[in-house]
Design a protein around this nucleic acid. Structure first.
Lengths: 337, 337
DNA sequence: TTGTAAGCGTTATCAC
DNA sequence: GTGATAACGCTTACAA
């Protein structure tokens, strides 16, 4: 069933049906009613492909996610869920594209096949080939995270460097002298994953400024790695009294390791970092930490993208969020030796 | 740039370019080479909407997920990631549709707008209006989970009833006499969510068969609820020595509650249930539990759907998986009083 | 207020 | 082996 069928049954032309549907031209009340009755009766909906072809837009967004092999973290998950929801609020559908490197069929299909009106990309590297690729096409896009030289692109991100700097200052204020940053996995760091690299920079900068002895360790995104990582720190650097972490997935392992070592937080050891609030509250004791406002970022990304699609000539915009650190109870003064 | 432009530059007709691309008709080697050169040079790719309109298929699948408001569980997340990956293996894109009840714009848009060639739906209720809706349309679909009367539909599911029955028998074999099932949230049970309802049935059936005193409690999908839930069980039914659970999200809270109550697992208390393997192994001690093989299910669902799309007249197929219970170390003999 | 008709970019059926 | 050309179902000037 198509628009012609509706037109025939309502005794009008196809264009009238189209206009009745879109409201782009006034239609007599009686005619509109007749048309709507027929539409309701037959449960008609315009064919999306035909409409996209005629209009030159698909009413669809692409969301580029990391490949399934790399298990999604909670934060990433929140991005996906919220992007979908925010897009739905604009009556936009979301096409998922798992993509890692630049040779990616799904990504290419979407980008050059005019399958979508715009793209949201997450897990951005400092030097990301996909960003380069999208810049060549004239497909509007917004990134969650930002490349090293964002130039005229549109993006939203959290200021990891500032956040981690603040964590270090907080620990320094509590008289800690030896601190460690538990980073994301070595592969991510090697690939130039923004948050991992920027956290390191902020950590070292603040530590130097406060004259702390500071070390950075990479840790795979899983509990077992967190446990091993902490035990290694205890073995190699027994003088360390506090850690900063941006590795959510390692947290349960960290918790277990602390327990196993007989350390009481924050009496014997302090922990802080960038951690989703629900995880931070789940920790025992609740973690003093900054939360990545994933929902806000995702919503913002969609809004920016919609804006950019509506006005391709608009000046580039971005947002660097700087969430507060919630003082809970996982940090305390450096323990007396 | 379109196929006409390619044809012009290659000095052939549009149809020849189309055939060179699809291979549905032989093209002279020299001609094909010329065409491919032009295509490569210009980075041409057929417009997806136009192709969909002409071919009558979109090369896209829809994945209907629970609305974002209800946070996705790990298992659901695995479904999403694997479906996307499996679809990509077939060169199919995936459109995400968050949908709860039946009044859903996104769902309707996708179903009646011919936006996709088929639908995969998860989080199925025993009496699910969306299944009814899809049956009316002649849109191929496969569900992860199954309605009470699946009739001629296509689905994959895990046999929750059998799994939970087996857990109960296992506990009975260990001489436990008083057991509790920690179910999913009360809302899910009330809504008729398959796994929640079928688990209850299997639990009660097996308990009755073995003459156990058995109770079922609902528990919201979050750690705090798990903690509260367990403390309530201890307070109201101190005689209980073992629980079966299908509520992954509540697990950390359960763990904490056990610890707080000074109970050592499995010496003082036994736990088992249906839990993703990586969570089961993360528990302390590792949980004796059956794992929902989310990846296998998702992959199977995609394969079935592809098959159904290719042959709409094919006989309905389904798969009721029955994963083994991994004996780890969270269950033991009933403690002496 | 409504109808006619020309696209939109493909695919596929005829011809040659 | 290749080229016209008619669909596919819709939107949108342009007429009336």
């Amino acid at each position: 069933m198509n628009i012609g069928e509706i037109a025939r049954r309502a005794g009008v032309s196809r264009s009238t049906v189209s206009y009745a549907l879109s409201g782009k031209r006034p239609v007599a009340a009686a005619t509109a009613r007749r048309i709507n009755e027929v539409i309701a009766e037959l449960g008609y909906r315009p064919n999306a492909s035909a409409r996209a072809l005629a209009e030159g837009r698909t009413r669809t967004l692409a969301l580029v996610i990391p490949p399934a092999s790399r298990r999604l973290t909670n934060v990433q998950l929140d991005f996906v869920a919220t992007v979908v929801e925010a897009a739905a609020a604009h009556d936009l559908d979301v096409l998922l594209s798992p993509s890692g490197g630049d040779h990616d069929r799904s990504f290419e299909r979407i980008v050059t096949g005019r399958r979508v009106d715009g793209v949201i990309m997450m897990e951005i590297l400092l030097d990301d080939p996909r960003v380069t690729r999208l810049r060549q096409n004239e497909l509007p896009f917004v990134t969650i995270g930002h490349v090293e030289h964002p130039g005229g692109s549109w993006w939203v991100d959290v200021d990891y460097a500032a956040l981690v700097r603040r964590c270090v200052h907080h620990l320094a204020d509590l008289a800690h002298r030896h601190v460690v940053l538990i980073n994301r996995s070595a592969e991510l760091v090697a690939a130039g994953y923004g948050p991992a690299v920027r956290s390191t920079a902020g950590f070292q900068e603040a530590a130097e400024q406060r004259g702390l002895s500071a070390h950075v360790v990479c840790c795979a995104d899983e509990p077992a790695a967190g446990l091993a990582c902490f035990e290694q720190i205890r073995a190699r650097r027994p003088e360390v009294t506090a850690v900063v972490t941006i590795n959510e997935a390692a947290l349960p392992g960290l918790q277990r390791a602390l327990h196993r070592a007989g350390l009481v937080v924050p009496r014997d050891f302090s922990i802080t970092g960038v951690i989703a609030d629900r995880l931070a509250e789940d920790f025992h004791p609740p973690l003093t930490a900054a939360d990545v406002p994933a929902e806000e970022m995702a919503r913002l990304a969609v809004d920016l993208l919609v804006e950019r699609i509506a006005d391709p000539a608009a000046d580039p915009r971005h947002a660097l969020l700087d969430p507060v650190i919630s003082l809970r109870s996982s940090t305390g003064a450096r323990p007396a030796r």
